[in-house]
Amino acid sequence: MVLAAASHALSYFQAVVIGLLQGVTELFPISSLGHSVVIPKLLGWDSLAKAQSQSESFYLAFLVALHVGTAIALLVYFRKEWYGIIGGFFTSIAKRRIETPDERLAWLLVVATIPAGITGLLLEHELRTVFAKPLAAAVFLMVNGLMLLAGDRYRRRAEVRELVRTHASTESETEVGRRLDTLDFKESVAVGVAQIGALFAGISRSGITMIAGLARGLDHEDAARFSFLLATPIIFGAGLIKLPDLFGHLGNGVRGQSLVGAIAAAVAAYVAVRFLMSFFETRTLWPFGIYCLAFGGLCTLLFI
């Protein structure tokens, strides 16, 4: 009975649509959680929209699979970086010193993951049940848009240019930025703390961490790279911790849809990260800021 109810509540078509949406929006700085709340409501899939803010539902088990799919796509795309980072992590522990760029990047990621990791473990459930609702997500999408626009402007300020000037830098066609491995641990913690904002549906994890990276003088490409590397353990960890939900009673009737959705999310995420790494070589956060403001504003008007 429960199995039949769950499989009727989520069709394979819906699984593919939401999987593609999750894969793209998790990495574009436009909030996957916000879109996964707002889009089902716009499409009239009310049972899915409501299931998000319930403390237990089949939809949360389904989302676990999508997160794992997205994280696998990120791991595959950045496989060379992760090979160096994981090697650097263990060699630094063996030596008890941080000397190479890979060792430094490994520890920058560890340090930046701790604040959001612990906050997520403790508060994710509470924040989701309170804020993962269409109107709140639409308002936070507008806030996200404003932050993206403000973050891009802040990158041009004199103090940020001074940060770039005083550190080893990289130069692209359009921008000079500080090298990623010149971030210090306090700055990395600041990026990690910023990531806590993404626990609110509508605030983008990649957007907020990119803004924090830009504010410390990284160029757009390195800010995006750091953001995606930082997202991988958090998304993967969140997925793994909740995997028992998928294999428990909550997953009854949606395991097939979850597999299909996860494959769709992985493909979409791989295409999205390829596109974005190329996009940020020459372009900025402005289009995403404008989109979030417009889409969030429109949804706010519709849901009021």
Binding site: R96, R97, G117
Partner: peptide, 23 residues
């Protein structure tokens, strides 16, 4: 369980930090 995992994560980080200070 999640509180337990968070506490365990802090313990692991503290142990790794302790190891680094022994260099």
């Amino acid at each position: 369980t999640k509180h337990g995992l968070a506490a365990l994560a802090v313990a692991v980080v503290a142990l790794i930090g302790a190891w680094f200070t022994t260099a």
